[in-house]
């Protein structure tokens, strides 16, 4: 009897040791893995003009009328990142090439129509906005040019402007004009900066693509547009009328609907991005 018990003890010990060993190996692998991958970001240069946005207080689309959100001054690319710029990025950073990218960072349609790892889609305009890029890829790009993605508040702050005023939200035609744009397909194939800039000098806020924001999922609306409840962590839920400050702003509803329908590794035909940057300058 004792003999059997002893044998059992030995057996257990052996199993335990071998498990530990395996764990160690895994840990080592994980270390190697991260070294060879995301840690090596090769900087590239970008000559896109950045526009100074003075910020201020603004009424977020989701929230209550009385709560204003402060946007501090920042710099924003005057236009979206283009195909040729993204090509330079993947050339310098092979881990972001189509054939190398990890599925958790970009889903299967990443750079879908590119002819190869380093060739743009057939007939694609080099100066059209890059699409089929994930949030992770957009974030990595921004890092390589020494910038970041704009926050949702920064983006929406700039989007309040029309061509002549910084806040056009009260004009009836403001939302209607944008909604009309949103109805048109295949706008993402056009070159950047072919239409007029807005009040701040920012181009193509609405007329080419949807754009990633750094915290695109921070306003966690439910995907059902009619419930008006608040969800987790007091974040407002719902593309719902009850938690929106402007129920006639259909264009904003559409943007928020898109943001809530995506995950960070999604890549979509008409979803691209532009970059932003902090600034210490305070202009009047």
């Amino acid at each position: 009897m004792m003999k059997v018990l002893n044998w059992l003890k030995i057996l257990l010990l052996v199993i335990l040791v071998s498990c530990n060993k395996q764990n160690n190996e895994l840990a080592i692998n994980a270390n190697n893995h991260s070294k060879s991958n995301s840690n090596t970001i090769h900087r590239i240069s970008s000559d896109v003009k950045m526009v100074y946005i003075p910020g201020g207080e603004y009424k977020p689309f989701y929230g209550s009328d009385s709560v204003l959100t402060k946007v501090v001054p920042f710099l924003l690319d005057e236009r979206a990142v283009t195909n040729e710029e993204f090509l330079a990025f993947v050339k310098a950073n092979p881990q972001w090439r189509k054939s190398n990218v990890k599925r958790i960072y970009a889903d299967s349609t990443y750079l879908r129509d590119w002819l190869s790892d380093t060739e743009l889609p057939k007939n694609a305009k080099p100066d059209a906005p890059v699409c089929f890029v994930s949030w992770f890829a957009a974030k990595a790009y921004a890092q390589t040019v020494g910038k970041r993605l704009p926050t949702l508040d920064e983006w929406e702050f700039v989007a309040m402007a029309d061509e002549v005023s910084p806040n056009a939200r009260t004009k009836p035609e403001y939302s209607n004009n944008i909604t009309s744009l949103y109805l048109q397909k295949d706008r993402q194939f056009n070159s950047v900066k072919q239409s007029k800039p807005n009040y701040w000098g920012v181009y193509n806020v609405f007329d080419l693509i949807w754009e990633w924001t750094d915290d695109f999922n921070s306003v966690l609306t439910t995907n059902d547009s009619r419930t008006g409840q608040y969800e987790d962590k007091n974040l407002f839920c719902a593309g719902s009328a009850t938690s929106s400050t402007d129920v006639l702003n259909y264009a904003a509803f559409m943007r928020f609907a898109l943001r809530t329908s995506v995950k960070a590794n999604y890549t979509i035909a008409n979803l691209g991005f532009r970059c932003a940057k902090d600034t210490t300058i305070i202009k009047k």
């Binding site: 995907n223 059902d224 329908s261 979509i268 035909a269």
Partner: peptide, 13 residues
């Protein structure tokens, strides 16, 4: 939601 939240699909998804 009668399935609304569960079925929300981004373009192409």
């Amino acid at each position: 939601g009668g399935g609304a939240a569960a079925t929300t699909a981004a373009p192409g998804k």
